[in-house]
Design a protein around this nucleic acid. Structure first.
Lengths: 211, 211, 211, 211
DNA sequence: CATGAATGAGGCTTCATTCAT
DNA sequence: AATGAATGAAGCCTCATTCAT
């Protein structure tokens, strides 16, 4: 069932026991998804891990897709988008870029299995994919504004298209993180940070006398 | 599948008729995969499209994964990696980079469904993923050598780590192409080419007095 | 079947309903096996006879072999091995032998189809064969002890190897029973009993002045 | 297909090449049957072993059952029934019985896989089973005549029913041989011969003053 | 005669989902 | 709310047999 075929959204649990059971299911689902992947995970694996019965699953969720969304929602604080630093307002732009990239790679390293799951589900479920794309674009537009400001301040190559540049640089970082930590290449974070920071600065033209 | 049943690779057909049937299956598989995605495609869809019986599938392939590999093998000439141009020997480096990136985006645009399939199967099938990673790395190393040469020639920022830079820039281009043509954003090729070419040149430090 | 999929023994049912369903399946399986033979019996025949769905079979059993084992387990009280009578302590040894043999043939006559099934499955399934062999040997050793005692008491030919004799005489009786009631020769039980009893007594040397 | 559904008996090959191909198939079938058992053997395994094509099989045989019969026919000289010695005409009856039993066990030991196959096919194919039963009975009757003669000569217990005795003693030997060499117990031939010969002599009452 | 590709009926198995308790 | 047995549609896969070359 795709995300769009939402049949009957289950309300949140009303009792304390219900809250506990739902939480157990979400936690179990994360364990199972990370262990077996989204496709190979069966609902019964999840209920077994949560130590409840098959039927109970349907008290709280409508489908595997829905509990996956709940897992992601619960984990959202642990994850982040590749961040474009607010360079314009910073005293030392390079340091901000570096810190931002490092934070991203560290996060990815800690949550590699979950990030891989996101990729997998995105290739499977059109709704999830669309939602992800939308968030990515929103993020890209926020970053594009920072770039624009830096261009206006004469800090950055004025020939660059802000939005496309934003997409490109974010993509560069996320792709590298994916290869490294989801696919298992495990390149050193320091190397990743060093290269991406330098490329980013060069690409933007930071530090060149733009004017 | 028991231990003894592991591979049993089917030999190539010996008769002309067999060659024809196998080719029909591969072609049909591509059609069906592109239409329905890897997961939703059933073996019977493929044999129906190829106008042969179910059993015939097993004359040539062992599994859906295997015929997918065959589809990719047959289409490999249509695809390419984002390549580092042979700038060192070129008179107009920017023009070479631009041509190279344009070729890549054009190819991706033509084969978006197939590229998306690659991503999907990579998240599903560990073998395919490993094989893809290996090819990607081989490619990255070839590109790294080009960067090294350009550094030696004083054309490119000597502070950059060639291999990581190679991975990062290739990733930037391929991620952009994926978002645009596999995920359906359909950004104009000209915009993609313009931005990536400029970013690439800046990032490498092409055109700066390096010495 | 992969290495990891080996056994997965299904637990016994926890509810009364489950107990009933499982029992219905075992009973249905016996009916179908006796009617069609092990090989020709399909899982769907069994579930149809038990009036449940295909999937329910897999709630309780993993394979046709496994439910066959369950059928045999449920019927084990109806079957027996040709046993060595406790002659040593009996007043009329011949009468005891005769009663024992008669009981065996009568049992076999009543359960001919089941006994035939045992033979069939033993030739097909190595596990079942091994298990049967082991039980047979355990039985032969118990009987061998009886023979030994009778030898010690001077009632039986002291030259006989107890264990091999035990195997030989049990085999004689079971083979005869098989030909008669599983293969359909249907020789009169009285004739079988008379001949085997006399042969048995003669073979052991019962009644001869052994000392 | 059962043996009784004979569709179109294939005539013997007319050319020398045909004779060779047929022989190769029979030989291959024996190899495969002995290796994999009758049930698990596929026609394609046999043709592969014989290095000919699938279609060729049907030039000479109609079914797996039929080629199995051909295998048995070709091997018949290597096999034998448990023999009842023609004691009446012998000077030393015990020696003849012993020699006869020894020959049987030796034969069984050499052809254990084939004997096991016979048992397997007998439980599967009603025609084969019937044919085997008939031969067994014919043999039992021949032996019964020998017993009768010995009874008439006063050499053997006159109370024994000749035909049932013949069946019982033959069965004893064949069952023992089956357990030992088909099921893999591998008891020493000397032990088997010693016990069966002694039991046989005792059972018949050979050597007792019958008169 | 030999070849080997093609056939397709038919059995097996999984697992999301329902439902009576 | 929780339980877990029951359901059955849906795909997979095998292999004896046919047949065009």
């Amino acid at each position: 069932m795709a995300l769009s075929d939402v049949p009957l959204p289950k309300g949140p649990p009303t009792t304390a026991r219900g809250v506990r059971t739902r939480a157990a299911l979400v936690s179990a689902a994360r364990t199972v998804f990370e262990r077996d992947g989204f496709l190979a995970s069966r609902l019964t694996d999840i209920t077994a891990e949560a130590q409840c019965s098959t039927g109970t699953f349907y008290t709280y969720f409508v489908s595997k897709e829905e509990i996956f969304m709940a897992v992601m929602e619960a984990a959202k604080d642990e994850m982040m988008h590749p961040g474009m630093p607010h360079v314009a307002e910073a005293e030392d732009p390079m340091a901000v870029i570096e810190a931002s990239n490092r934070a991203y790679f560290e996060t990815y390293k800690r949550n590699g299995r979950l990030m891989m799951l996101q990729e997998q589900v995105a290739t499977i479920d059109a709704d999830f994919r669309a939602q992800r794309l939308q968030r990515g674009e929103a993020f890209a537009h926020r970053n594009a504004k920072s770039i624009q400001k830096m261009q206006d301040a004469g800090l950055v190559d004025a020939d660059l298209d802000p939005i496309m540049t934003s997409r490109a640089l974010s993509g560069m970082v996320s792709r590298l993180a994916y290869s490294s930590f989801a696919l298992g290449e495990n390149w050193p974070v320091d190397d990743l940070v060093e290269t991406t920071t330098l490329l980013w600065a060069n690409a933007l033209g930071l530090g060149n006398r733009v004017a």
